[in-house]
Amino acid sequence: MATRLEGHTFRRFDGELYRLNTEILQMADLVYDQVQMALESFQQQKLDIIRVITERESQVDAMEKSIDNTITEILAKRCPVARDLRAIMAFSKLVTDLERLGDEAAKIAHIATTLYNNEHSNPSNYLLRDITGIGKFACTLLKEAIETLDALDLERAEKLLNSHDNLDEEFQAGLRRLTTYVLEDARNVGHIINIVLVMKSLIRIGEHARNLAEYVVYMVSGEDIRHTEIEQT
């Protein structure tokens, strides 16, 4: 089940919502690219990519401001209600998630610089194994979340929200493995702290992807499912 934003008798409103939707999707594409590049920089030790990520970080921030501006304009001019209002509220919230996704990508790139750009030895491949696994998972989730956002599809959002459990499991397994490596050889601890930080960033990327899906649920069904698990604890 999907929702549609067009169909207003006053067509200019359709155009404004379409423009907003496009801006959101462009920003989502950009942060997805940032996340992928950050992972690539980490796995392939490409420090030149890190510079690109840092430069594009300001582009992400500028897009956030531009989208906020578009939203303020629409609210002022159109006084949206019902599904239009829900869409605009959700867009306004999820733009923050997109910006934070960009931040996480920059954070990963920054850690890659500290890991590879010093005189100490680089971390061995088996230490990086979990980053590859969790990274792949997080990217798939993010891609799926962005596609769900593009389609505004309730079923896809629901499926994504259920699949997120696996990312937490991967994180825990990775944490256990890394703990063992520290116990085996305490000299690994510097690398491992950085690796755990990257893993944590990847988990956050997963969380943000989940938030995007939650906003899609709100847009389509009007149901606010945020923090549900905390209320039920």
Binding site: T3, L154, E158, D168, Q172, S221, I225, T228, I230, Q232
Partner: peptide, 21 residues
């Protein structure tokens, strides 16, 4: 990790979304 485990257990209940109003 333990904290995450606790939250994960609860999360299973929540993905029951009603259809559009």
């Amino acid at each position: 990790g333990n904290q995450l485990e606790r939250r994960r257990g609860d999360r299973r209940k929540y993905a029951r979304i009603h259809l559009s109003r």
